[in-house]
């Protein structure tokens, strides 16, 4: 359903989409059925001249089934959805596959700084590439990311990956993704972070290996810096 509007750009995007589809099928069917019964009853039992309403207490076990059967159905389908949800959650947030490369994402009011490893493939060396509001990754590689904030809460959202993670000052929060398509897409801050929250768009540029490596070589050692607006660094470098 989602992929109709937004391509599934990471290895787990498809699983999140399937989970959403599963929930849609379950709640769509039962929700619709409930609405149909509900409207049906309204029409069927509209006031008629001389017809008195039934006296039903609903305490009789036979009558109670009207409610208890849907009750158990709800439970069964809830369990089904929980299993699906937990599996997807584990895949995205709990199990971290081995990384090919690590990128560092630093958010601040109201800009992003992305630190990529240079040609040596390692962070914290001289050839690290720091960019503002533009993250470059290679398709098919597994990335770990480390999120940090200089000031307030932000949230690192890459809709194309179906990925979202809040960023909390004072902590480094880790996660992963593996792009499966190429192109340039939005990165968004999805946690309100002050008056510039709407002015914090960034880009993710996903390229083929050759193109990406060329970019890395050309930019080795580049260190763009987003100027801090509020003066505070939140304990970050």
């Amino acid at each position: 359903m989602i992929s109709k509007y937004l391509e599934a750009g990471s290895t787990y995007a498809g699983d999140i989409d399937s989970l959403i589809l599963l929930i849609l099928a379950v709640v769509g069917f039962w929700g619709l059925l409930a609405e149909v019964v509900f409207f049906g009853l309204i029409f069927k039992f509209a006031e008629k001249e001389g017809v008195k309403a039934l006296y039903v207490t609903g305490e009789d076990p036979k009558e109670k089934r009207w409610v208890s059967i849907p009750h158990y159905l709800t439970l069964i389908f809830d369990v089904m959805i929980i299993i699906g949800a937990l599996r997807v959650w584990a895949e995205v947030k709990l199990d971290m596959p081995q990384a090919d490369e690590t990128v560092r994402v630093t958010a601040q009011q109201w800009a992003w700084t992305f630190t990529h490893p240079g040609p040596d493939g390692k962070l914290d060396t001289e050839d690290d590439i720091r960019t503002v509001d533009e993250l470059h990754v290679e398709v098919g590689k597994t990335y770990h990311f480390e999120l940090a904030s200089r000031d307030v809460l932000h949230s690192f959202s890459v809709p194309i990956f179906r990925l979202k993670q809040d960023i909390v000052p004072g902590r480094i929060i880790k996660g992963w993704f593996k792009p499966v398509i190429t192109g340039t897409y939005d990165i968004q801050c999805t946690e309100i972070c002050g008056i510039g929250h709407g002015l914090m768009p960034a880009k993710i540029v996903i390229s083929e290996a050759g193109k990406h490596q060329a970019w890395v070589k050309a930019n080795a050692g580049v260190a763009a810096v987003a100027a801090p607006v509020s003066g505070s660094t939140g304990g970050m470098p």
């Binding site: 379950v26 509900f38 937990l86 959650w89 179906r162 979202k164 946690e191």
Partner: peptide
Amino acid sequence: GEFLIGGVTGIFLGASGADIYFHD
């Protein structure tokens, strides 16, 4: 009638895996 819709759409958000996308 309306609250039913509100109720069932909550399932998408309560399911942690789907909430990653729908949150915020």
